[in-house]
Amino acid sequence: MLPAADGRLREFTPRGAPPAPAAADAPPPRSRTAYAAAHVVADPLAGNAIGAPARLDWDATLAFRHHIWDLGLGVADAMDTAQRGMGLDWPATAELIRRSAAEAASRGAAVCCGAGTDHLEPGAGTTPKEVEAAYTEQLETVEGAGATPVLMASRHLAACARGPADYAAVYGRLLEQVRAPVILHWLGTAFDPALAGYWGHDDPAEAIDTVAAIIADHASRVDGIKVSLLDAELEVRLRERLPAGVRLYTGDDFNYPELIEGDAGGHSHALLGIFAAIAPAAAAALRALDAGDTAGYRTVLEPTVPLARHIFAAPTYYYKTGIAFLSWLNGHQPGFTMVGGLHSARDLVHLSEALRLADAAGVLTDPDLAVTRMRALLEISGVR
């Protein structure tokens, strides 16, 4: 019996069947480059209170990455899904980058990692030069570990930049120094309100010219750009402006099936938080796309959209709670706890609906385990 939005309990019986999993060490998709942005697993015995240093369950955290690699997907690590700026401090992040990159190298798997400025002190007074130096420090950590860097959108740059010219100058100098092509990162305000006005424009539609110009000026240093605006039209507009060889990685957790499938004008690749929650379905769908089976692709992936839209519902930045919740239901971690206490960010009604939608999407890999664990959560929450 699951609590519903009307305040009543509703009967729930799992009925979905997960897609057939890929064999271990499945090859990556041929037609699209795909990364699942992975979360981190908190050590339940180490505190992880709000404002405390993050302490991770390293075995479970790294095992989850191997789960994604086993399916043939790449891992995007140390990103916002891993609670950058929401509980995961820089010392823990740096250790995560080193460990994840080493695990990827041990099996020849794909990994990209976020480089940002979140080790700077918050508040006013930061200059663009200080932002650049902070980026450089984190870039050295990511490149030194052997991972592809993702230049994450910076709250500090959003706070101190006076206009598009400051963004062009900072990104230009950073791109001139990178050892190999990197991935840029455009995160909309639904994911982080502190990024309002990024690229020097309040309206993201007006920022497309600035972003396209920065990429065009440094195309040989840019592998692609991850776009998380939850606006498919704007994503396609930018995609059409990219130089040949530069990828658009969709981070649109609302509209990803059609953006990845694409049309005669092109398609997006994937760097998605929802792929961590639906990894077996995502891998199966991309294999169908490789085979030219667009109907099969849609059959597998489209049922996951209601789940994604629920997990990423406003306030969107709490989506990490849903990702960790489904990881727990599917047996990838021993407990439903998160660094910074973020497991409390979604209520029981929200989590119950996530369970229903995960079942309908076919992404409960062990429905009996999911029911057992949900019953335990309901009991400790006072639901009888």
Rank of each mutant, 00 (worst) to 15 (best):
A54K: 03
T250L: 06
A34G: 13
G265E: 03
D6C: 11
A23W: 02
A94L: 04
L139D: 03
P280Y: 05
P3K: 00
G116S: 09
V131C: 15
L272D: 03
T372W: 08
A361K: 03
A360I: 01
P14K: 01
A102R: 14
D70Q: 09
Q138R: 06
E261G: 05
V75F: 14
G335Q: 14
A60G: 05
A17V: 10
A109C: 11
E130R: 15
V131F: 11
M152C: 14
R356I: 07
Q138S: 06
G72N: 12
G200C: 08
V170W: 05
R55C: 11
H332Q: 10
A4G: 15
H310P: 09
A54P: 05
A169L: 14
D43K: 15
R309G: 05
A5C: 08
E379A: 13
S228C: 02
L357R: 11
A270K: 08
Y198T: 09
Y35T: 03
G123S: 13
L248N: 14
L357V: 05
F312Y: 12
Y35V: 05
G87M: 07
R287N: 00
E233C: 07
L377H: 09
A37K: 07
A213P: 13
H267L: 09
A110W: 12
R84P: 03
T117Y: 07
D89T: 02
G362Q: 01
D263K: 11
E240L: 10
E240G: 10
L151I: 08
P29F: 04
A180I: 03
I208L: 14
G296F: 06
L272P: 11
Y318N: 12
Y256D: 01
V300N: 06
D253W: 04
A308N: 02
A115P: 11
G292V: 08
I278T: 12
V236A: 13
A295S: 11
H218W: 06
D347V: 10
P257M: 04
A34T: 12
P53H: 02
S100A: 15
G74C: 12
M79H: 02
R107W: 01
L369M: 12
L120V: 04
A279S: 15
L62H: 01
T148Y: 02
L230H: 03
G116C: 05
A23D: 06
V75H: 15
L56A: 03
R287G: 00
P3G: 02
A219N: 05
P3H: 01
M374L: 14
V236D: 10
R298N: 04
E95C: 05
A216I: 08
I215L: 11
E137W: 00
D231N: 10
R98E: 14
G382H: 01
L369E: 10
N48V: 09
A277C: 10
T93N: 09
Y171D: 02
A216D: 10
H343A: 11
R32P: 13
P44C: 15
D166A: 13
A314L: 04
E261K: 13
M374I: 05
T304M: 12
T365A: 09
D192M: 11
R384V: 00
P14A: 00
P122N: 09
P204T: 00
A82S: 15
T33M: 12
D347P: 12
A219C: 07
G72P: 13
T93L: 05
A109R: 14
E353C: 06
S106D: 08
A276Y: 02
L184E: 01
L187H: 01
S31E: 13
A37C: 14
I278C: 10
P243T: 07
E143Y: 08
T304R: 13
